[in-house]
Design a protein around this nucleic acid. Structure first.
Lengths: 157, 157
DNA sequence: TATTGTTATACTCTATAACTATA
DNA sequence: TATAGTTATAGAGTATAACAATA
């Protein structure tokens, strides 16, 4: 991502991102997107054997933390649409990792619970997340990680 | 995203994320994903009229900054696969926003340039990005933005 | 041989709209 | 009326694999 490794020979006649106020590198959203993309790729590689995606792991984890959680609550916590949530839950259910029970308190809601296979998978996933996290934090001190999490939280809260 | 707004009545018997070392909220990758999701949604709303995505705008911007850039270089700068880059370039070309010219220096490469419509669209897009960025930064001081960008850069560099 | 671009293919996430069931 | 879930549908990004053209 350094600027030096560009322009081996052809093409780029100009390079006017010296001190531009409007340079793309000054856009916060640009950096969030790039960091996300890099993490997503590494996550996918790390989880290739387990066959789980970021979102799927997040859902397993939250259902384990909050047994009986409803899809709407899950959607809110993960900033997802209802339909998106459905798609993810459907895939996890097809893998027999969780089940839907009708809520006793509110007939409209589904109470989500992990299946035994779901618990086993989550345990393995947490080990893989440990590896992945270590990679993400590879250049950071504990204090910097804390700062980064605090700042990011103020975006998605 | 606060913890208090959960558990209106049914479901969640437990809530053991008090001070767990392994709590999902302590996972940096989790916060990157959430922040990205929130930004993506707001971006999509902001750009609904223009009909452009985050990635498409990034590509337009980089092609404008580096006229004649090759797809491989673009892929490297945006942390994308070659095939992914193809898909995005194809969509932008179908909208007549940019064109592919065979590179004079290296017959394997494509030299990308914005079409006049691409320049006009980018100008409009930059205004919309200004709005979007203001929203992303709504809770931050200038110093905090600087810190956040510096930390994120160390993930994707 | 290595690089660049291309095509075919597949999966996940994302969202909208319309529908059913329940509160 | 409002909420929760569901289904159908569509688009975008992501990646792998195999191939052609060029260096």
């Amino acid at each position: 991502m350094t600027k030096a490794q560009t322009d081996p020979q052809g093409g780029n006649q100009q390079d006017h991102d010296r001190a531009d106020i409007g340079a793309i590198n000054a856009i916060l959203g640009f950096h969030i997107r790039l960091a996300h993309g890099v993490c997503l790729r590494h996550f996918t590689e790390t989880f290739a054997e387990l066959g789980l995606t970021q979102k799927q792991v997040s859902v397993l984890w939250l259902v384990d933390d909050h047994p009986g959680i409803a899809q709407t609550d899950l959607a809110q916590r993960l900033q997802m649409d209802r339909a998106t949530t459905m798609a993810i839950i459907n895939r996890l259910q097809a893998k027999h990792l969780l089940r839907r029970d009708r809520s006793a308190h509110d007939g409209r809601k589904q109470a989500l619970h992990l299946e035994p296979e779901g618990h086993a998978m989550l345990a393995r996933a947490k080990l893989a997340i440990g590896e992945h996290e270590a990679w993400v934090k590879r250049n950071f001190s504990d204090a910097e990680v804390k700062t980064l999490i605090a700042l990011l939280s103020r975006i998605h809260e």
